[in-house]
Write a protein that binds this DNA or RNA. Structure first.
Lengths: 343, 343
DNA sequence: TTGTAGGCGTTATCAG
DNA sequence: CTGATAACGCCTACAA
């Protein structure tokens, strides 16, 4: 049996109220008494019971994270960023992931009720408003990379449009006119925004998007592979490929290699995310960098603010991205406006 | 304010005890009363308060996971496996990750106290016994991929030795005698075991390990790149490279490409883990597959058993691995004894 | 089949 | 500075 506040009080010859004060640095306690209590507590290995504390204070010191079924390293890195902030504050992290549809997300949300002081929700396939009814009332929430601008909730998105715009503009500037787009699944918000960014770059350059040059993938290597073959069969063939994430770009690279198409001489290729492997494939991949841990960290910090100050205004923030030019797009890395990855 | 059991009781014209019975399917309740209570509860959106429940039952319905700072997708996939099992049982997952040393792990362990009914701990750099004193007493624990056999705790490891043995034997059988080993960090248990498996294969083939053919990496692409260059400079040069994980193998591939060394003609290459990209690099990577989600899932199932039956014997289990032959090692995929990945 | 009442371990409010 | 004591919301004998 773990010892309770009562054991400590008895052993130290004080009331439980005083022990409580010591453990919460609340109220004044005589230095001697404090020392005595500290000592007894250590000897008895006393640790306050979290449940009792929660029951009495209505605070859990825990934040909840609800995530969809994420592909690749995204999940790890988001959690890494969140966890770091959370630990720094001595809080805890309740995680629920791998939700594939709205029903599951809603169930997860319900399950979090009463167990967390705030929520980070990520559901790139769902509109924020659809979640509204199911979010526990009065609970601070940060929407991470959700569709919409977050509406009445705090929201944080990475700048998908800006990043896609930058890559596309880069390709256009280097003379490419027929650019094949390997898109993500259209129900996914990131995928839609990245496509939109590309379209805007086309428009700004006076070019127009050709529907036959857009092939949908699902963010997996395999789908990138397949899409590249499809685009390769077109007549005339595109001279550049922009995949909505690096995994698909890498799948495309492997397809091009098998087809004997040289990159970047015969076909420029670019991706999105700058996953670690991107610089180690052949040729190294031009892409858009976004710091996922930072995305998580910023979400956590925002949530803490919202918890601390419940009346604070909702905020909608955008995490900037960065074009990373490597060899796969044919431009000389380091040339022009683009940022160049260290070797 | 969320409604309490008392609100439901009043509204339904019964005592709180009866409402409690309904929500715990315990004791007999008249069908009519049950229906009435269910209905009222739904209308009031009543959800039992977890803290109160925990306080009175001493059960949290939560399992804790303590993980080190994991590289790449490993973390995601382990959690995916655990989370799936946990959700299936309607339990919760308290996560604490990114711990770099013993002090941090111990702090995390302490913080879990009283908040979880069981613990999955992963710390490939630490010996199980070192953790012993810091584990909350009497709490069911499963050690995941920890050094040692787990000792007095349940343990689950992937068959690192067996996998490494299989790759190495495969290379030896195809005529390679000078095999360069790119090892993981030696403080890491997986890394040590994989090296040991390779050594055992050497021994079984009557070959001996040459120290100059072993270069230490840290599981990152970059370190694999560097190690490959180092091995390439040897005279005579090795004819094959076995990296202790795929990331390093991919780094090595990029180094070989830059050096103009053809794979597999001039140098066979193999990795370990079978990460998704492994089959999309050039040439596709021969490696060892291990299902990480399954590793997590099995750990969770074992933990649930241990929680259900506190007196159950501690068990030490091994998750099998599987050799995946692709082009990078020069053997014809599908030939011989090896398992061949579908296209 | 249902109700009563004590207890789970803390915090917080009031008196002293 | 310190001590009683009433919540907090729920579970569970024990009674009825």
């Amino acid at each position: 049996m773990a010892s309770t506040i009562r054991d400590v009080a008895r052993e130290a010859g004080v009331s439980i109220a005083t022990v409580s004060r010591v453990f919460n640095n609340s109220g004044l306690v005589h230095e001697d008494t404090r020392r005595r209590i500290d000592e007894v507590a250590k000897r008895l290995r006393y640790i306050p019971n979290g449940a009792a504390r929660t029951l009495s204070t209505r605070r859990t010191q825990t934040i909840g994270v609800v995530l969809p079924d994420l592909y690749g390293e995204f999940f790890s890195e988001v959690i890494r960023g969140i966890d770091q902030e959370v630990q720094r504050s001595g809080w805890h992290l309740l995680v629920s992931s791998s939700h594939n549809d709205r029903v599951e997300i809603e169930a997860a949300l319900r399950a979090m009720r009463g167990r967390v002081d705030g929520l980070i929700v990520m559901s790139p396939d769902l509109d924020a408003h659809e979640l509204a009814q199911n979010l526990p009332e009065m609970l601070p929430v940060v929407l991470l990379n959700c569709a919409g601008d977050g509406g009445v909730y705090n929201s944080l998105n990475m700048d998908n449009r800006g990043g896609a715009y930058a890559v596309t503009e880069h390709l256009l500037r280097h003379g490419h006119r027929r650019i094949g787009l390997i898109t993500g699944p259209m129900r996914n918000h990131d995928a839609r925004e990245r496509l939109r960014g590309a379209h805007e770059a086309f428009a700004a350059a006076g070019a127009t998007a050709a529907p036959e040059l857009e092939v949908a993938g699902d963010f997996s290597e395999r789908s990138g592979h397949r899409a590249a073959l499809e685009l390769l069969a077109l007549e005339p063939r595109p001279t550049a490929l922009f995949a909505a994430n690096d995994s698909m770009a890498i799948g495309a690279l492997s397809a091009l290699r098998e087809a004997g198409v040289r990159v970047p001489e015969e076909m420029a290729v670019a991706g999105f995310d700058d996953i670690p492997i991107a610089r180690y494939v052949s040729p190294p991949l031009t892409t858009v960098r976004v710091s996922i841990p930072e995305l998580g960290g910023q979400a956590a910090r925002r949530l803490f603010e919202a918890i601390r100050d419940t009346k604070s205004e909702q905020r909608h923030e955008l995490l900037p991205t960065e074009l990373v030019v490597r060899r796969s797009c044919g431009a000389r890395p380091g040339s022009g406006e683009a940022w160049c990855a260290p070797p």
